[in-house]
């Protein structure tokens, strides 16, 4: 039985296989009844409407159906049932489980109690492998991933999507430039892990210093609550804002990604530029999640 819990569990061959499958699906070379008769449970212990919708849509496009838990307040969770018990029961109802949970490691725990495959759709500040896979897929649709130069921008301390992405990129010999405000730099544990995987990370505090050498710019949100006061937040946020003028310093083929939703990090004037790939990136969630569902269910 195959679970998809963390990119740390995946080698390059496993990731490439999923990205290849997603490409075939996007090119409409797939059987739309591949998962006919299969039922997927969507267990969302915290709201993430778009992730849930994209898994539901992916399942429907493969001919399968989905059941959801409904609101957490109305379910046995409110009566104090453990996740482990819920998983033991629900895995008897369905063919696979997609889990979103506020606690880190919840999906790993669920996989230990489930009789069907578990896909992690985000566990707290932890792993969210479908996001990482669709990020990689978007890069690969634009250029070969091998040796790509990626700038990670924003809150790199708490923004775990960048940690998972960096770990996955290390399998492809990528070069990583980390651009973060003081206090929000990549944690030392991640830097050490990347170094062990042979990936060098160069740290910058200003995006202007590095954008000219990048192939990919991955922008993440800087949250207001990380700063002591609004003034210091606005000061930092404005200096990390992506504008057409900034993109003008970059090479033509630079692509700009963002896990969305964005707030002010990217000037809306960038949306019309050919470099802006963040909406395509969001759309890639469907073929990538279809590939993941096929992988664990077919």
């Amino acid at each position: 039985m195959r679970h998809i819990i963390s990119v740390r569990d995946m080698d390059r061959a496993a990731i490439d296989a999923l990205l290849d499958a997603a490409y075939e699906i996007e090119a409409r070379r797939y059987n739309p009844q591949r998962l006919a008769g299969k039922i997927l449970a969507l267990l969302f212990y915290e709201p993430s409407t778009r992730t849930r919708m994209s898994f539901e849509s992916a399942m429907a496009r493969l001919g399968g159906s989905s059941v959801t838990m409904g609101s957490v307040e109305a379910s046995s969770v409110a009566k104090g049932e453990t996740l482990a018990d819920t998983i033991r029961v629900v895995s008897g109802y369905v063919d696979a489980i997609v889990l979103r949970h506020p606690k880190e490691g919840a999906a790993r725990l669920a996989s230990e109690f489930s009789s069907v495959p578990v896909i992690n759709a985000g566990d707290g500040a932890g792993q969210h492998p479908s996001q990482t896979l669709l990020d990689l897929y978007t890069i690969r649709r634009a250029m070969p991933i091998n040796g790509v130069r990626v700038g990670l921008l924003g809150d790199l301390r708490y923004g775990r999507t960048t940690h998972s992405l960096a770990l996955a990129l290390s399998l492809y010999g990528a070069e990583i430039a980390a651009v973060a405000p003081k206090g929000l730099e990549l944690p030392s544990g991640i830097l050490r892990e990347l170094a062990d995987r042979g990936t060098s990370v160069t740290e910058y505090s200003a995006i202007e210093d590095v954008i000219a050498g990048l192939d990919v710019l991955y922008v993440t949100r800087i949250q207001r609550e990380r700063f002591p006061d609004t003034a210091s937040y606005l000061d930092i946020a404005s200096s990390y804002r992506i504008t057409p003028e900034l993109i003008g310093l970059a090479r033509d083929h630079l692509i700009v990604l963002h896990p969305l939703p964005r707030v002010d990090e990217i000037d809306p004037r960038v949306d019309a530029m050919p470099n802006a790939k963040y909406f395509e990136q969001a759309h890639h969630g469907i073929p990538v999640r279809m590939a993941m569902l096929s992988e664990v269910l077919a």
């Binding site: 453990t82 996740l83 482990a84 506020p102 606690k103 880190e104 490691g105 500040a125 932890g126």
Partner: peptide
């Protein structure tokens, strides 16, 4: 040491 870790809850982990 991670307060957000599932192993620090009432789950059988």
């Amino acid at each position: 040491p991670n307060p957000g870790c599932i192993s620090n809850t009432s789950e059988p982990a």
